[in-house]
């Protein structure tokens, strides 16, 4: 695979806990299932978790650190997913790496991965400091994850500003943890509010889903076993859209049915 056609995608959010790593794990599995050779790179050296969400924490021998210091080959550090061999994880190294890691180091790792994979997904750390900037240096395009909350949207805006200034594009948005009932009651920012404010195209809309917690408990991403839960479908659709397929977005207001939902919609009607 020539590096030129590999897609290097940064998954970032600014704020922590909005679902970056969950998206990276699920998207990685979904792309792999669709036949794309996919590498996920844990760029959160301080607080790494991607290995845990993928259920690969016990199989790590080497990390990005040994690859960079050339004490092992890339192939030795990559942890291949047993059920989905199209997916491999390059684990984050020791947190002490943060002291010397440079943007060029991340570019070097990404380029090495590009030799073997169609997609390189880079799980960025929270924040907008050095760790984030290192991760950003390895990417050509980005997915910004946010939730419909003021703090998450504000932080996403800061990150988008940085991505714009570094010429990372396209930048697409995944709106996570959407609660249709709260949106219907106008107690949560509407999807259009968030996309208008951030001025980004929407790549995916993920409903709040308890199954996400169940799947992280097990270390089996929702997209792995054809789980039909709302979040699983949403993550699979994000992967299909990334691959260029035209998949319509769900409409949160249509996700609820029955008389209460009808009344909810009626209450949202603009009178003047």
């Amino acid at each position: 695979m020539a590096a030129a056609s590999t897609r290097y995608i940064l998954i970032c959010s600014g704020k922590g806990g909005v679902g970056k790593t969950t998206l990276t794990a699920n998207l990685g599995i979904a792309l792999a299932k669709q036949g794309a050779r996919t590498a996920v790179l844990d760029a959160d050296f301080g607080l790494r978790n991607l290995d845990l969400l993928l259920g690969l924490e016990n199989r790590i021998v080497y990390t990005a650190q040994e690859v960079l210091s050339e004490s092992c080959r890339l192939e030795q550090a990559l942890v291949k997913h047993k059920q989905e061999p199209n997916l491999a994880l390059l684990p984050a190294g020791n947190p002490r790496m943060l002291e010397w890691l440079q943007p060029e180091d991340m570019q070097k790792i990404a380029a090495m991965l590009g030799e073997h994979f169609d997609y390189v997904l880079i799980d960025a750390p929270a924040g907008i400091e050095g760790g984030f900037k290192n991760a950003m240096a390895a990417a050509r395009e980005a997915i910004v994850v946010t939730t419909p909350e003021v703090s998450a949207v504000r932080d996403a805006d800061r990150v988008i500003g940085l991505l714009n200034s570094e010429g990372v594009k396209p930048i697409q948005l995944v709106l996570n943890r959407v609660r249709p009932k709260m949106m219907a009651n106008q107690e949560m920012l509407a999807v259009s509010d968030v996309t208008d404010i951030l001025a980004l195209p929407l790549l995916g809309l993920v409903l709040e889903d308890e199954q996400v917690i169940v799947s992280t408990n097990r270390g089996e991403p929702l997209t792995l076993n054809g789980n039909g839960s709302p979040a699983a479908r949403a993550y699979t659709n994000v992967a299909r859209r990334l691959q260029g397929e035209d998949v319509p977005l769900i409409d949160p207001s249509k996700e609820r049915q029955g008389i209460r939902a009808t009344i909810g919609r009626l209450m949202q009607t603009k009178l003047f």
Binding site: V150, V153, R154, Q186, A190, L266, M267, K270, F272
Partner: peptide, 30 residues
């Protein structure tokens, strides 16, 4: 103004918070 806003006003309840969130965000982002 939506039907919900009118009802909230008639009942003396606080208006729904989504719009407040949007306005506060727009100001802070500017």
């Amino acid at each position: 103004m939506t039907l919900r806003d009118v009802i909230n006003k008639l009942l003396g309840r606080q208006p729904a918070s989504a719009n407040t969130a949007k306005e506060r965000l727009q100001l802070v982002l500017a």
